[in-house]
Amino acid sequence: MDFLRPETLAEALELKASRPDAVPIAGGTDVMVELNFDHRRPGALLDLTRVPELRQWSDGLRIGAAVPYARIIDELGTALPGLAMAARTVGSPQIRNRGTVGGNLGAASPAGDTHPVLLASDAVIEVASTRGPRMIPATEFYLGVKRNALEPDELIVAVHLAPAAGPQQFAKVGTRNAMVIAVCSFAISLFPGENRVGAAVGSAAPTPRRAHEAEAFLAAELDFATPKPLLDSVKREFGELVSRAASPIDDVRGSAAYREHALAVMARRTLGWAWQELLSRKNRGGEQSCA
């Protein structure tokens, strides 16, 4: 097996073009498991850890594909609270030191923790090849179980995500209190300026999925300009719509019925927390202008 170690993005793209069989490796937390289990025998590994363009983030925000979770938590927690919350639930400290959002996208597991956040926050995935770059909205990126929209010669370069316009939340159910793969997960982002909400489910369908009806329901129901405490009936209906967006299966990690139930509960609760945050921000803002 060849081990290719490009030093620049251009070089990485050249290598990927000439060796489409080369498997990119960033943190290696998925790739090495697959190699160890003999699920994959690639002719070459393409190491992305030395490519500076992939290891940085810039204001705006453009996050390099190979920025590890630990840095997202430390450096981007304020700008991207939803992504940081999801990053915090990934694996263990060791995994968070190595693992990356680019790797999560590359693996495209329906259980990947960052996917619901990327969907709920309108992320755009920047990919590139020697033929040039492409911008793929997250909603078009996930094609099937562990299948994404990358062409064989393309690499994931960055994720574009606007700094949070409003409160964000992420929640994930697992049968252990740490280091656990999602039985199901849910992300919500409020966009107060646009009077809308982003919502998406993970690990509850062949791909991570946006909950369009649930989003539309809240856009119609919520008053962002003069927010009032949420009615229970609104939270409940939202929960139902979120769980209807899923098409889960029974597997070793949980039953389909449980997943639908848990999604509804998580949707209700996270909406409550996000809305509460919005209310208290408004209140604080109000107090300040009075003073």
């Binding site: 639930t89 939340q169 994930k172 159910v173 697992g174 209190n177 509960v265 609760r269």
Partner: peptide
Amino acid sequence: LRELPGGVSNTTHGEG
């Protein structure tokens, strides 16, 4: 969070 059911998976802030 680390001492609540679900831990940092952020499933409850005390609800339920």
